[in-house]
Amino acid sequence: MSLTFIIGGARSGKSTYAELKAREYGEKVVYIATAVVTDESMAERVKKHREQRPVSWSTVEMYSDFERLAEYKEFMDNEVVLIDCMTTLIGNYMFDSKINFDTCSPEEVNNLEIKITEEIFSLINVCKANDKKLIMVSNETGLGVVPPYYMGNYFRDISGRINQKITVASDFMYFVLSGIPIKLKHKGEMIKWQEDF
């Protein structure tokens, strides 16, 4: 099992690069799509993503219950798992929680973050248990302005902390900037501060 983490800003080319890595890792790929179509704009984005993927790839649409993946033929029959993307997954969880982020307690947000983190690591664990090559895609949300509303702040903070945890767990990591992938981590390399993370 290996974990490759690909991160970048919106429209940076990270999904395209993740798909190139998936082709490099093997011909048998299952794509886990975390997006939920809520409007015409999202429908168009999903359509474009589908069109750029090889027709031979399997697709599973889900952002939760990853411990059940071993029950999916699409998962078991393929050697490479590509999930795109973690920040969409986080947003879905925040929306589904029905929490009022303008008035909620810090404990409610912390409990939600724990639940999301556990879900993401259940995906990593099921891939490890079934010897899959896992590619995870996420947005870097910490480079822009501070969101002017509570939910945006919580989303940025949760995403940032979860991205750090995925980084520690990853074997390989790339940052994609305007279509250019920059290697940040290679298996066996460890940033000193990560040892106690």
Rank of each mutant, 00 (worst) to 15 (best):
N78T: 15
E79P: 10
E79L: 13
I83E: 00
T87V: 14
T88W: 01
I90L: 03
Y93W: 12
Y93V: 04
M94H: 08
M94Q: 05
K98R: 15
N100L: 05
N100M: 08
N100K: 08
D102N: 13
T103P: 00
T103K: 11
N111G: 08
N111M: 08
L112G: 05
E113V: 07
E113L: 06
K115R: 07
T117K: 07
E118T: 08
S122L: 08
L123E: 01
I124L: 12
I124D: 04
V126K: 03
V126T: 10
C127K: 02
N130Q: 03
D131I: 05
K132P: 01
V137R: 00
S138N: 11
N139L: 11
N139A: 03
N139V: 06
G142T: 06
G142Y: 00
L143S: 12
V145A: 11
P148D: 10
G152R: 00
Y154S: 03
D157Y: 03
S159C: 14
G160S: 10
R161H: 07
N163V: 05
I166K: 07
A169F: 11
S170G: 03
D171N: 14
F175W: 10
F175I: 12
V176K: 04
I182Y: 13
I182V: 15
K183T: 15
L184M: 15
H186T: 15
K187P: 13
E189L: 07
E189P: 00
I191T: 15
K192R: 09
W193S: 15
W193A: 15
W193Y: 15
E195I: 09
